[in-house]
Amino acid sequence: MADLKIDIGGLLLKNPVMTASGTFGYGPEFDDFINVSDLGGIVVKGTTLEHREGNKYPRMAETPAGMLNSVGLQNKGVDYFAKHIYPAISHYDTHILVNVSGSRVEDYVKVCEVLNELEGIPGIELNISCPNVKEGGMAFGTSCPSAREVTKAVRAVYHKHLMVKLSPNVTSIAEIAKVVEDEGADSLSLINTLLGIAINAETRRPVLSTITGGLSGPAIKPIALRMVWQVANAVKIPIVGMGGIMNATDAIEFILAGASAIQVGTANFLDPTVTIKILRGIEEYLDRHNVATVKELVGAMECC
């Protein structure tokens, strides 16, 4: 049987299937459906310094082959996470990464200082790409100087695995990726959601309370694949790919484009057992194609 283990910049995953932040709760939401410990890793909901109520209802709109959300980083803050949520999930036998968000560099730094102390958290996913907060978040991920500033500041205080999550809402994602690599990121994850709008023609009103929201699901897969491929050609650090992965074939496509591991997001809503199906499907693909390790497949798209 194929070897599914994969090293993503010092973090050894037992398999390449992770879950995407904001789509998997903290893990227990899925305990009835799957054995969370079977996964390569989970990334929990975006965590900020202070408690955030998130945006007003309505926060979700179904769109062709996808959905828009404007949840707006609703969470109880990093101290609550450390005190109440972390103890309830640290038993999982998988890597738990915390998605860190903020609107000021100092806030990112303070959150990371708290997370440094949590033994069972081997790394963070630095979210410089959330489109659903008024100030900050994506602003950091859409220009090279601000992406550099926040990555540098966090790297200075955070000593474990630093994965930086990139925004697709940019002209050149490869340039941002290079800056973040320069500042010491251990890995990159991409893509976050694409900015979009849904309009109700009958009422002439936007569907979301925030007017714009983040698009996810199969609708964004071709863009995500293109970006993973561009970034893979621009940096040396490992990439975790996501965006519209619904099944094992989609996951294999991301790996071929250059991703060492993948995250499953919106697909969890349609089928809460999908991650395990993807895991089994990757295994089956490797065996069927006589590939001994996942690693051999990373970036193995043959272009001519």
Binding site: P58, R59, M60, V71
Partner: peptide
């Protein structure tokens, strides 16, 4: 009722304002 993407607490898309927040 509310707009729901998952139905089991994973997405936080379906909030209502209560006296104790969303």
């Amino acid at each position: 009722e509310n707009t729901m993407a998952c139905g089991f607490g994973a997405c936080l898309c379906c909030v209502v304002k209560t006296t104790d927040g969303h």
